[in-house]
Simulated scan of single mutants.
Amino acid sequence: MTSVDIKQLIRNRGSIKKRLTTFEKYIVSIKDGLISPDSIDVQLRYDNNINLIHEFENIQKLIEEHCTEEELKIQFEEREPFENKYYSNLSFLKDYISKRTSPTAIENSSSIKDSLSNFLLPKIKLPVFNGEYDQWLEFKKNFMSTIDSNTYLNDIQKYNFLNAALEGYAKRVISGCDESQDYQRAWQKLCEKFDKTVFT
C-alpha cells in the first residue's frame, strides 16, 4: 500500500474521531444541563454513534498493518484515547436512556404532568351551554380548542370540565356517563345530539 493510501486512511480516521468529538460535546451539554433532549433524540444519537468503535477499528487495523515500523508506535497510541472516550460517552448515554425509560421515571413524568394539569385547571373558563341550538357551534368550537385537544388533561378532568359547562337539557343528554371512563362517550353523545339537530 502506498503512502498516499496511508494518508487517506488517516484522514478517514480523523473524520471518525471528529464525529466522536461531536458526540462527546452532546454528552457534555446534557451533563451540564445546557440541553434536555427528548427520548427520541437521545435514542437516535445513541444508535447513530454505536458503530463508531467498529469503524475506527477497521481503519486503525489497516493503518497499523501498512504503516512503517517507525510510525507503528505512534499509530498504536491512537487506540487508547479513542476507546476510552467512546466507552465513557456511550455508557453515560445508555444509562441516561435506561433511567428515562424506567417505570419510576415514567411514573414521575406522569406525576409532573398531572401536577401541571392541576395547576392549569383554574385558568380555563368556558361558557355555559344549556341546550340552545343556536349556541352549540360556538360552544363546541371553544370546548374542542381549550379542553378536548388539551394534552395536559386526562379524561376525568375533561369530563369534569364538560359536566361543569352544561346546564339543563344539555346536561341531561350526558346523564348516565361516568367521569372515570365515559368522557369520550359523553362528548360523542352531545355531538351526535346537537350536530344532528343543527345540520338537519
Rank of each mutant, 00 (worst) to 15 (best):
M1E: 07
S3R: 08
S3D: 14
V4D: 12
D5C: 10
K7G: 09
Q8C: 10
Q8H: 14
Q8A: 15
L9W: 06
I10C: 14
I10A: 11
R11S: 12
N12A: 12
R13E: 06
R13P: 01
G14A: 10
S15Q: 14
I16H: 00
K17V: 08
K18Q: 08
L20T: 00
T21L: 11
T22S: 11
K25Q: 12
K25A: 09
Y26W: 08
I27A: 10
S29H: 14
K31W: 10
K31Y: 11
G33P: 02
S36R: 09
D38L: 07
D38W: 00
S39I: 14
D41R: 06
L44R: 10
R45K: 13
Y46N: 07
D47C: 03
N48R: 11
N49S: 08
L52Q: 09
E55G: 15
I59M: 02
Q60G: 04
K61W: 04
I63L: 06
I63H: 00
E64M: 13
E65M: 11
E71M: 09
Q75K: 12
F76Y: 05
F76D: 10
E77V: 12
E78R: 15
E80F: 14
N84E: 15
K85L: 15
Y86S: 09
Y87P: 04
Y87T: 12
N89P: 10
L90N: 03
L90D: 08
L90V: 02
L93I: 00
K94M: 07
Y96E: 06
Y96S: 02
Y96A: 02
Y96R: 09
I97T: 10
I97C: 03
K99V: 14
R100E: 15
T104W: 08
A105K: 03
I106H: 08
N108W: 01
S109T: 15
S110H: 10
S110G: 06
D114M: 15
S115F: 12
L116V: 11
L116I: 06
S117T: 00
N118F: 03
F119R: 07
F119Y: 04
F119A: 08
L120H: 05
L120T: 06
I124F: 04
L126C: 05
V128D: 06
F129Q: 01
N130Y: 07
G131C: 10
E132P: 15
E132M: 01
W136I: 15
L137P: 12
E138C: 14
E138I: 15
K140N: 02
N142R: 12
M144R: 14
M144W: 03
S145G: 13
I147E: 01
I147V: 14
D148M: 07
S149N: 08
N150Q: 02
T151V: 13
Y152P: 02
Y152T: 05
L153Y: 03
I156L: 07
Q157V: 05
K158Y: 04
Y159C: 11
N160A: 13
L162G: 04
A164D: 02
A164Q: 01
A165D: 01
L166S: 01
E167Q: 08
G168L: 00
G168A: 07
Y169G: 04
R172Q: 10
V173I: 13
V173C: 00
I174F: 00
S175F: 04
C177H: 06
S180F: 05
D182C: 04
Y183P: 00
Y183K: 00
Q184Y: 11
A186H: 01
L190Q: 05
E192L: 08
K193C: 04
K193H: 03
F194L: 04
K196L: 00
T197Q: 01
F199P: 03
